[in-house]
Design a protein around this nucleic acid. Structure first.
Lengths: 128, 128
DNA sequence: ATAGCTGCAAACGGTTTGCCTCACA
DNA sequence: TGTGAGGCAAACCGTTTGCAGCTAT
């Protein structure tokens, strides 16, 4: 494996943007290297993921978002407004232990999105 | 709104199949009404969802899966083999309360997929 | 010389749109 | 007779593939 300029730029972009889609990452990379193709971005993300340098999360519909691997937290996705909040993974410790004991399922807390309604939307709904 | 034959068939298919993609639902419908178009399936699913008769869940990559609304449980998606296990929503009660208290986020337990590694895959990994 | 990385274009899967036709209140 | 439901084809977005050219060993 060679750390080519393109790959470095993709990794930098993931680091800077946090939760960015391949499309957004590509745009960011193209600000310094306009000829970089989105195909390269996809291939690089796949590679970086195999190397455990980045990870991706499906936040519901649309494209997945990529983050650097150290970026560990749980995503709370509001299905009403689309906002994404983050909370520490430790909130899942109890559930994780429970699942493991009951079903043997090993929860991956950082690669995770929980859906529901965020506080803002809950308030808005109550004011109707 | 009119409960047309097509719409009834789509609803029946969702009920029978559980966790089916629009594509699968379409195939099921076409077994009794071969001319029904996938466009109609999409439009009907959207409609049924607005009426809270069905709901959809994103189980990771690929197409979402649809279930009838009463079908309430948490999906455990194994990111190694793709298997989907189900556990009762009550397992999330603690987390739900915690999230609500800490952040005001109202968790929708039934519209939810948790990712991780299933017991089978955990065992396989340990036997390497 | 060779392996492997890149760009481009084309194919792909899943979904949405526009439009025209049809059925039904 | 007018509103809305369905079918079809085309557009669409996100992603993957095949291939040809280039680059660094």
């Amino acid at each position: 494996m060679r750390m080519t300029p393109q790959r470095q730029l993709v990794l930098d972009a993931v680091r800077e943007l946090e939760h960015a889609t391949p499309e957004q990452i590509c745009q960011q990379v193209q600000r310094t290297a306009p000829t970089v193709n989105i195909t390269t971005v996809y291939r690089t993300l796949e590679l970086l993921e195999k190397l455990s340098l980045v990870r991706h999360t499906h936040l519901g519909h649309g494209a997945p978002t990529y983050s650097v691997d150290e970026h560990e937290h749980v995503h709370l996705v509001c299905h009403r407004c689309g906002r994404v909040n983050e909370v520490p993974c430790s909130l899942l410790d109890g559930l994780s232990a429970r699942l493991s004991a009951d079903t043997g399922f090993r929860l991956d807390a950082s690669h995770l999105a929980l859906s529901g309604t965020c506080q803002v939307c809950v308030n808005e709904e109550e004011n109707l």
